[in-house]
Design a protein around this nucleic acid. Structure first.
Ligand SMILES: [Zn+2]
Length: 415
DNA sequence: CGTTTTTGACCGGCGC
DNA sequence: GCGCCGGTCAAAAACG
């Protein structure tokens, strides 16, 4: 009798323990998620500032930022022409593909789709096949809206530590492929955004070969639909990085310059380096949210591609720009940044492209060496403005709540 | 049932 | 041309 009761109790306890473990795990995931978001946001901010100072006269923008509720309109969103209406998805699509190509979808069976059609009978193919075609075509004709064409080319890869098989960025993804990478035991998975039909955004996820706790997520393209706040951080960050990558500034010396600026603007407190790697078929920005406890990353030329570090002249050591990190550190868990403080931005481009393709862009804003000063000045100005910090805090908390509140629907990712 | 994942086939580009 | 390789497709299976 009594035995029975004891047993019962025990079972109960065990059950509870299990639950707690589960919750614990959940919390851990959440925390990691939040941390990632934080890093992304941080990065975003810096990128933004960078852009801002590129176009000084846009000074007013700061105000826009302050005014706008972060949840609804991110400055970034303004920058790239994403329209609001939900139904706009369709419209956006038309816009994005606009001039150059004839959308083959919906009743316009183009001749050039034939190849794929071969595989299957239905002319229903629609959407993606042609898109690829277009890609090439567009590359063929230089003019075009550089945004669309180039955006597809540009890639932003994010390195972050994550136990989860996939980083939670607030978007919905459908896996459409998986391959074994060559020099890597871990497979690479391909996803595409399913938040809207025809959203061109894709990403591929792969675990780092020599440190499996690091997850490399590579984004490509811009969303053509409104995003939930939880997804804003990543999306806008990557978009910003991408646009930065191929908007004028990227070429040659500037290319080196930018990450440099970013690096020093961001992590005054941590060792930072901008790495530029040659040999990549397409321009790629790499945001490294890995802290990398060991100086491992300082000698990370393992992968065959010739990678070389670019130690900035006279900038090897931590910088003094104490304002920034504090601003972020406060509203969040007081400096949990130990984990993600390190952020490093590197750009890679095709070795072939390295030389040419640079001046292709107009108005090379020859950025004087004083740039760094400008940036830090801007940083100071911005971060000193209470309104701005308030807005930022709001943004952050919104993201956090969006990501963590179970009731906010999105909560956790699947699987 | 609709949606997502799995997984082998397939494609185009590139180097040989 | 051939084979490799990074990507993608799509049928079937798994999922909820
Ligand atoms: Zn999308």
């Amino acid at each position: 009798m009594e035995d029975k009761r004891a047993k019962n109790e025990l079972a109960q306890l065990q059950d509870e323990l299990k639950r707690m473990n589960a919750e614990n795990q959940k919390l851990k995931d959440m925390l990691s998620h939040v941390s990632n978001n934080y890093s992304a946001l941080h990065m975003h901010l810096v990128t933004l500032m960078q852009q801002q100072q590129q176009q000084p006269q846009r000074n007013r923008e700061t105000q826009a930022i302050q005014k706008s509720k972060p949840e609804e309109v991110t400055p970034l969103q303004i920058l790239d022409r994403s329209r609001p209406s939900a139904a706009g998805a369709e419209a956006a699509e038309t816009i994005s593909h606009s001039s150059s190509e004839e959308r083959t979808r919906s009743g316009t069976p183009p001749s050039n789709v034939e190849k794929r059609v071969n595989r299957e009978e239905s002319p229903e193919s629609e959407s993606w096949g042609p898109n690829c075609k277009v890609q090439k075509l567009s590359s063929g004709k230089p003019v075009d809206q550089s945004t669309e064409a180039t955006m597809r080319k540009a890639r932003v890869s994010v390195r972050a530590r994550s136990e989860a098989p996939m980083i939670t960025d607030g978007c919905q993804w459908r896996k459409y492929g998986q391959k074994m990478a060559k020099g890597n035991p871990c497979p690479r998975a391909y996803y595409r955004c399913t938040m809207a039909v025809g959203c061109p955004v894709r990403k591929q996820v792969q675990r780092c070969a020599d440190d499996r706790t690091i997850l490399i997520t590579t984004y490509e393209g811009n969303h053509n639909h409104p995003l939930p706040p939880a997804a804003m951080a990543m999306a806008s960050t990557t978009a910003a990085a991408a646009s930065m990558l191929l908007s004028g500034s990227m070429p040659s010396a500037d290319g080196i310059m930018n990450p440099n600026l970013l690096a020093r603007a961001i992590l005054p407190c941590s060792s930072s380096m901008a790495t530029i790697s040659a040999s990549a078929p397409f321009p790629t920005v790499t945001l490294d949210l890995t802290h990398s406890p060991n100086p491992l990353q300082f000698q990370r030329p393992p992968p065959p591609p010739t990678q070389f570090q670019v130690p900035f002249p006279g900038q090897p050591a931590p910088v003094s720009a104490p304002q920034l990190p504090q601003v972020f550190g406060q509203p969040l868990y007081n400096n949990n940044q130990s984990k993600f403080s390190g952020l490093q931005l590197s750009q890679e481009m095709g070795s072939s492209q390295l030389g040419r393709q640079q001046q292709q862009h107009q108005a090379p804003p020859q950025q004087p060496p004083t740039l760094a000063d400008t940036v830090s000045a801007a940083t100071a100005a911005i971060t000193n403005d209470p309104n701005f910090t308030a807005a930022l805090a709001a943004a952050i908390s919104s993201i956090i709540s969006g990501g963590t509140h179970p009731n906010s629907s999105n909560n956790n990712n699947r699987q």
